[in-house]
Write a protein that binds this DNA or RNA. Structure first.
Lengths: 192, 192
DNA sequence: AAATTTTATTAATCTACCTTATTTTTCTTC
DNA sequence: GAAGAAAAATAAGGTAGATTAATAAAATTT
């Protein structure tokens, strides 16, 4: 839990008292590979922070195809923000890709915490601003770059994901088929 | 300005005193059709709220092609959040598509306001959560639907934009060429 | 370590969407 | 309201990436 406070400390400075209040609402939980933190149709009742491990958040379309919205690594917050915010059924699934430890704050606890420790409101504002900017960048890349370039950028930016995750999931994240990603990779390796 | 307070009031309840503080930092400004609120390379010094009018935020890729990230209508906040947050040069341009009135808050004023009126921090957290959820939805749609369906959904969701904006910009927003959108439209009209 | 399942490769065919070019329509501006 | 500019339509040919299917290679399970 203390590493969590250190992490918070990068964004906001809390007094001892405030730290205690924050700690009192944190819930720790562990998942095995393949387990779901949340599933489509559920209401996302927790903000979930990844202490260790790796997850993916994905969406199943009408044809049953998976589309990975985002991966989640250490220090990331994951879930379906739309569902959490409005406490309505989620469209997304969040599944662990390996043994994963998370810290969660329930919706009710967080609402209280916002009032008791307004700095937490600032913290989440900053976090989501960052996430928003990152997602805008992704939209830009998807529109202006071909699959091959997107893959190369992804490898640069998320080497930990490229290593530890099946290729077909990376293809899904990039918005292409696994066959085409395989093709791109074989091209790249031929070129040296 | 009072309509702005009414708008704020949908998200947070301010005391008279707080309202006064908020009002004191608002700056009103008008733009003509075609004028830029911000340009690529500038630092976005203001959070910009649209009182009336219509804007687009777009990005120029290495080949000089425009990609529309988002349109902005009445009650929307526009700009380059990445640039504003970190006060670093923007990648995006924000241009008025018609006569547009905006309300702006400077970066410095907003930082002060966050401290003096913490509810404003809540307000922006809520706003950006909403924007984030909307953008996730867009990514999902782009991955799981063909251009034709995306266009139909766009028409449903943003009829005001479809009416008042040149087709080639809608094509750009959808991530397709203007020629292909024109083709889709002629197909649709043949089908009745 | 054999058997089963999951993931990745390869290759042929196909299609959604792009490119380029020309023509027509609509919008501005004088 | 005529002239010019901007936007939209149409059409031929091209390509990035999809689909299908068959094979190979890893990873799990027993």
């Amino acid at each position: 839990m203390n590493t969590f406070l250190e992490y918070l400390n990068r964004y906001i400075q809390l007094t001892k008292e405030e730290e205690t209040k924050v700690l009192s609402v944190l819930q720790q939980r562990s998942y095995l590979k393949g387990q779901y933190i949340q599933q489509e149709g559920d209401i996302y009742r927790y903000q979930t922070y990844i202490e260790s491990g790796k997850v993916r958040t994905f969406y199943l379309d009408d044809n049953g195809n998976e589309h990975i919205i985002t991966f989640g690594l250490k220090h990331w917050w994951v879930g379906d923000i739309g569902s959490f915010t409005s406490q309505s059924p989620a469209h997304f699934n969040t599944q662990c890709l390996e043994k994963t430890k998370v810290i969660q704050i329930s919706y009710e606890d967080l609402e209280k915490l916002y009032n008791e420790v307004p700095k937490i409101e600032r913290f989440f504002r900053l976090i989501i601003q960052k996430a928003y900017a990152k997602m805008s960048k992704r939209i830009v890349q998807n529109y202006s770059l071909p699959a091959r370039e997107r893959y190369l950028l992804f490898c640069e930016e998320y080497p930990e994901v490229v290593q530890g995750v099946p290729q077909y999931m990376i293809a899904s994240y990039l918005g292409i088929t696994k066959e085409f990603l395989s093709h791109i990779r074989s091209q790249l390796s031929k070129e040296g």
